[in-house]
Amino acid sequence: MAQESLITDEVRAAIGVETVSPPELVEMKAIKDYARAINWPDPPNPLHVDEEYAKKTRFGGIIAPWCFYTTLGRSAPRQRVPLPPARVGMNGGNDYEYFLPIRPGDMITTTSKIVDIVEREGRAGKLIITTSERTFTNQNGEVVGIAHGTGLSQY
């Protein structure tokens, strides 16, 4: 390959660096909006929107939808990766581990890190595959879940 790799030492240095978000309040409205959106146009799962219903379940109250992890950690300081801007960025995959439910009023801290950055020669040009990990911890210090993610950047 005559072309130079986009993965320089500076890019590689971003791997493994942890960033921590300020604790983030899980709002009831955010839970309900999310639950409605993932079921639309069907009615949402009452476990996420109906306190009376949820109280009678083993959860004892409203909990967030499991995939609510997508919303968390946005306020985390952005890990600077010195790559040129991609033509298009895409989500390559999500892999979520669920340990404990997230509840309205929880204060969630997200610890993020890049696990690996690799380069491929795709059909349409260079492809950078970034794998990352976000660990979610609640106000009691309990790890509620881990999100493994794959990001694709097309050049």
Binding site: A37, I38, N39, N45, L47, T57, R58, P65, W66, C67, T70, M90, N91, G92, G93, N94, D95, Y96, E97, Y98, H148, T150
Partner: peptide
Amino acid sequence: GNLKYAYLSNMMINWIGEEGTLKRLSAQ
């Protein structure tokens, strides 16, 4: 992708019921 993930999780949650517990779900 996140919405497709949500639909896959809906399928699982509908099927395993409220006494079932989803421990891990991955989608590519």
